[in-house]
Design a binder for these strands. Structure first.
Length: 248
DNA sequence: CGCATTTGACCCGCGC
DNA sequence: GCGCGGGTCAAATGCG
């Protein structure tokens, strides 16, 4: 633990062009304590934007392999687009993170998706085939899927992702996760792991993968909002409740 | 023994 | 229509 510091930022800035942020630099609302790298995000037509809500993680990055090669590869990073349903963002988030670990971050607001888990490709292509009502075609759907679909539509939870430099894949964010899948994605030698929050009725998911260009980097993507507080047994509980006061 | 992880199968949308 | 790629399921396996 040790060197945590609070990051206060307005995700709207994430929609702007790639920008390098140096330690302690300030830009409007922002006050970054560390090197952050933001990315040009794909513009996606917005059809539905409820109020954003998601839980930024509260990291106590366990291993402190914080070698000093923090920013010597920020050029490569700038070319990487992380997955996220990028939409206009209005709110600020604040959370606590070990600054030497956070290298980039993206956020998104929630939007409506058919339950069928439209892939990232839609998002990445900026195409939104949003025939909102007719995705309940239950033809040829297995029992498995039927159970999931149940005629309702899924609200695509807000997501955000960020990169950290770490040799552990799963950062300790205070929540308990159960792995439910692993997949080797194209053009990467490292598998992507899928985790779900173990808490009942909490449907937050998280994806962890290593950056192809730099395996030292871990890309973590959160989706959804926890309906409970972290199950951390640590002394962080006070800080966490205080940090849960976000500005939405 | 109970729970977590692994891993191949399956589903679904997209592009060709 | 088919193959591909990503996400999820669930039986099998591992582990404390």
């Amino acid at each position: 633990m040790g060197s945590k510091s609070q990051v206060l930022l307005n995700p709207q800035a994430l929609l702007e062009d790639h920008q390098e942020v140096t330690p302690n630099s300030q830009m409007g609302f922002f006050n970054f304590p560390s090197n952050l790298t933001f990315f040009q995000l794909p513009s996606i037509p917005q059809t539905h934007s409820p109020s954003p809500s998601f839980d930024p993680p509260n990291f106590s990055t366990s291993n402190n392999n914080t070698n000093n090669n923090n920013n010597n590869n920020s050029n490569n990073l700038s070319e990487t687009l992380l997955s996220s349903s990028i939409l206009p963002l209005k709110s600020s988030i604040s959370y606590e993170i070990a600054p030497q670990h956070l290298l980039s971050l993206q956020t998104s607001t929630p939007n409506l998706w058919p339950w069928g888990e439209i892939g990232e490709r839609l998002l990445m292509n900026g195409k939104r085939s949003n025939n909102n009502e007719n995705n309940n075609n239950q033809l040829g759907v297995s029992k498995m899927k039927m159970k999931k679909m149940k005629g309702r539509r899924k609200v695509r939870e807000p997501r955000f992702s960020f990169k950290t430099m770490s040799d552990v894949d799963v950062l300790d964010d205070g929540y308990k996760w159960r792995k439910y899948g692993q997949k080797v994605v194209k053009n990467t030698q490292h598998p992507r792991s899928y985790y779900r929050c173990t808490q009942d009725h909490c449907r937050v998911k998280k994806r962890v993968e290593r950056l192809a260009e730099d395996p030292r980097m871990v890309i973590t993507t959160y989706e959804g909002r926890h309906v409970h507080s972290p199950s951390h047994d640590s002394e962080d509980s006070e800080a966490q409740t205080h940090l849960n006061n976000f500005f939405w």
